[in-house]
Simulated assay, not measured.
Amino acid sequence: MTWTIPNILTVFRLVSAPMVLLSFVILPRPVADWAALVLFVGASVTDWIDGKLARAWDQQTKLGTMLDPIADKAMVVVALAALVGLMGLAPLLVIPAAVILLREVFVSGLREFLGDTAGTLKVTKLAKWKTTIQMIAISVLMAFGGLVSGIEALTAGMDSATAAAVIEGAEEDLFGLRWKSIAATICLNGGFVLLWIAAALTAITGWDYFNKARPYLKD
Rank of each mutant, 00 (worst) to 15 (best):
P69I: 11
A79L: 10
D68R: 01
S108V: 05
S44Q: 10
V78N: 02
D50G: 01
L67V: 06
D58A: 12
A79W: 01
E112C: 00
V94M: 13
D47E: 11
M87Q: 14
V107A: 04
G64I: 10
A97K: 02
V77R: 02
A81I: 15
S44T: 15
R111C: 04
L92M: 14
K73H: 09
L63D: 11
V105N: 04
I70M: 11
L86V: 13
G51K: 06
R55L: 05
W57N: 09
G85V: 05
L86E: 15
L102F: 15
A79T: 15
M66N: 04
A82N: 10
D50W: 09
D47N: 02
D68G: 01
Q60C: 00
L102G: 04
L80M: 13
A71W: 01
V105C: 06
D58L: 09
A97N: 09
G88W: 04
G85W: 13
A98V: 15
D72Q: 03
A74W: 02
M66F: 14
F106A: 09
D50Q: 05
L93Y: 04
A82F: 04
I70S: 03
I49G: 01
V76W: 01
M87G: 08
P96A: 10
I49Q: 02
W48N: 00
I100M: 07
L83N: 04
F106S: 04
I95L: 13
P96Q: 13
I95Q: 08
M75C: 06
P91I: 12
K62A: 15
V84K: 11
L63P: 00
E104A: 08
I100H: 04
D47P: 00
M87H: 13
S108M: 13
R55Q: 03
L80N: 09
A97G: 07
D72M: 03
M87R: 15
M66C: 00
S44E: 14
L86P: 08
E104P: 02
D50L: 05
D50K: 06
V94D: 06
E112M: 01
P91C: 09
I70A: 04
A98M: 14
D68F: 03
K52S: 00
L83I: 12
K73I: 12
F106C: 00
F106N: 02
V105M: 14
V105H: 11
V84N: 10
T46V: 06
V107T: 10
G42V: 10
S108G: 12
V45F: 06
A98T: 15
L67M: 14
R55P: 01
L86N: 13
I70N: 04
A56Q: 12
M75D: 03
D72P: 01
K52L: 08
L80S: 10
V84W: 08
S44V: 11
G88M: 07
A54M: 07
T46C: 05
T46Y: 07
P96R: 10
D72R: 02
Q59H: 03
S108F: 15
L89G: 09
D72I: 03
P91N: 13
Q59G: 00
A79G: 11
L110S: 12
V99Y: 11
L86G: 06
V99I: 15
L63I: 08
A54H: 05
I49C: 01
T65M: 11
Q60G: 00
T65Y: 06
A54F: 07
A56C: 00
G64K: 09
A98W: 15
D58W: 02
A43P: 07
A56K: 11
V94C: 01
